[in-house]
């Protein structure tokens, strides 16, 4: 469409880019910070930013689910896990592998490849986020979910059940002869 141009970005686009920068920045901090808890907290920012990006893309329901699940459950799980594994206050030395250059290489290579391919494929494509709004509402998404995706939905419920059982089994996997197996934190207290 001729009306689109790089030179005159719309408000939504500007917002998207700004939030995107926040997301990328916090994401970078998540994978580079020496302080694990800080990284986890930055992950909240990153997830929240992605939630806002969803909103900007017209996926309202997904956005709030993102906040609910990631902010309320996943991050709490992470913090919980960090505390149980005695994440120290301050920098954790040796948090990263000593030779990071292969990982950096892979990361940069992946970025280069993906961006190149994406740019080549979609440099002339525009879309209207508002088109997705009807779908992004609770009603639209619910309709799509239960009209077209009931079976995957049910399969997913089975998966969740399996994960639940698995998590319980894992955390109960202690035999009598294993001896005292207290959490380090409790042992201290």
């Amino acid at each position: 469409m001729a009306t689109h141009s790089y030179l005159s970005p719309t408000g939504v686009e500007i917002a998207f880019v700004l939030v995107g920068l926040v997301v990328l920045g916090s994401g970078l901090l998540v994978v580079t910070l020496k302080n694990l808890v800080h990284a986890a907290l930055w992950l909240i920012v990153c997830m929240g930013g992605i939630g806002i990006e969803y909103l900007l893309l017209g996926a309202e329901m997904v956005a709030w689910i993102q906040v609910l699940i990631y902010g309320g459950a996943v991050i709490v799980l992470f913090l919980f896990g960090l505390m149980l594994t005695k994440a120290p206050i301050g920098r954790t030395e040796e948090l990263d592998v000593a030779h990071r250059w292969p990982a950096v290489l892979v990361g940069l290579g992946a970025a280069g490849t993906l961006v190149t391919v994406t740019v080549q494929a979609y440099q002339h494509t525009w879309f209207e986020p508002r088109d997705a709004l009807a779908l992004g509402s609770s009603e639209g998404l619910g309709t799509a979910l239960f009209h077209y995706w009931v079976l995957p939905f049910e399969a997913l419920s089975v998966l969740l059940l399996a994960a639940l059982v698995g998590a319980i089994a894992l955390s109960r996997a202690r035999r009598e002869d294993d001896g005292p197996d207290e959490l380090p934190g409790e042992a201290q207290a």
Binding site: L105, V106, G109, A110, T113, T116, V117
Partner: peptide
């Protein structure tokens, strides 16, 4: 593994 995948993807691209 990812280095390999990357090389393949780059070649393919």
């Amino acid at each position: 593994l990812f280095l390999g995948v990357l090389v393949m993807a780059a070649v393919y691209a």
